[in-house]
């Protein structure tokens, strides 16, 4: 059992997302295969945390559990002070909606919606709070896309966009509701180096600007070098912890 993820470099700041003793098994036929053996993690506000590890180590699975998409077999996930997996499904969906922004490797945009509509989607799904104001939301989404250099692509559908453009739309969507936590699973893994670099610059700039906590999975050492902290996942556990100097 590792406590490596729990107490990093003595950094201060409120913990916004934490995993405690998370185990996950998958049923494979008759047998059950444990992928995560008790992983811990604490992500602090404004922190840029990088998770590395061999393919198949369980990084994505861990991210999905932290992102409240997959239920852990054992252990807890604490988000915004709540034990998320013990909440009813509705409340958990609400937490996910308001506090977590996902950026996936394959962008995962809805093909029937144009760029603006894709970005606005989390706002439409949101429950409670102020009533959804369509024109205000559109304006907000357009401003975001504008900042990301997509002002000419507002009404284009994903099929009409390049990989890099889709990734930027996906980032805008993740940021739309101002979440506390941004979770990115190999966000540049599907792009060429230059395009990937550009998307990452954008993501990191926004993260810094907004003071978000970022949890980033990558294989790329250069990307890891731009994070404050890097954890390695090995055999279903968080193994090592290395602090980097903030690069700027």
């Amino acid at each position: 059992m590792s406590t490596a993820g729990l107490d990093p470099t003595g950094a201060t700041g409120e913990v916004v997302l934490a995993a405690r003793e998370v185990r996950k098994s998958f049923a494979i036929g008759e047998r059950s295969l444990e992928i995560l053996h008790g992983a811990d993690l604490a992500l602090r506000a404004s922190e840029r945390l990088c998770l590395m590890g061999a393919s198949g180590a369980g990084k994505s699975t861990f991210l999905h559990i932290l992102g409240l998409l997959e239920q852990p077999t054992e252990g807890r996930v604490i988000l915004a002070g709540e034990d998320a997996w013990s909440l009813p499904a509705r409340r958990r969906a609400d937490l996910r909606n308001r506090h977590i922004g996902f950026v996936f490797q394959f962008y995962h945009l809805l093909p029937e919606l144009d760029a603006v509509e894709n970005v606005v989607l989390p706002g439409m799904i949101a429950r409670g709070g102020p009533r959804f104001d369509r024109s205000a939301a559109r304006e907000r989404a357009e401003n975001l896309l504008d900042r990301f250099g997509l002002s000419e692509r507002l009404t284009h559908r994903p099929g009409q966009l390049s990989g890099g453009e889709r990734q930027r739309v996906a980032i805008a969507r993740a940021l739309f509701l101002d979440p506390q936590v941004l979770i990115a699973d190999e966000p540049t893994g599907n792009l060429d180096t230059q395009t990937g670099e550009r998307g990452l610059d954008l993501l990191l700039a926004e993260q810094e600007l907004r003071g978000l906590a970022l949890l980033l999975v990558t294989h790329d050492e250069r990307i890891a070098a731009r994070c404050e902290r890097t954890l390695t996942m090995e055999d279903g556990l968080i193994q090592a912890d290395s602090a980097h100097p903030v690069p700027h």
Partner: peptide
């Protein structure tokens, strides 16, 4: 899956 990730309930 995407809608669920964005906060939709079953």
């Amino acid at each position: 899956g995407i809608l669920t990730a964005l906060g939709a309930t079953p």
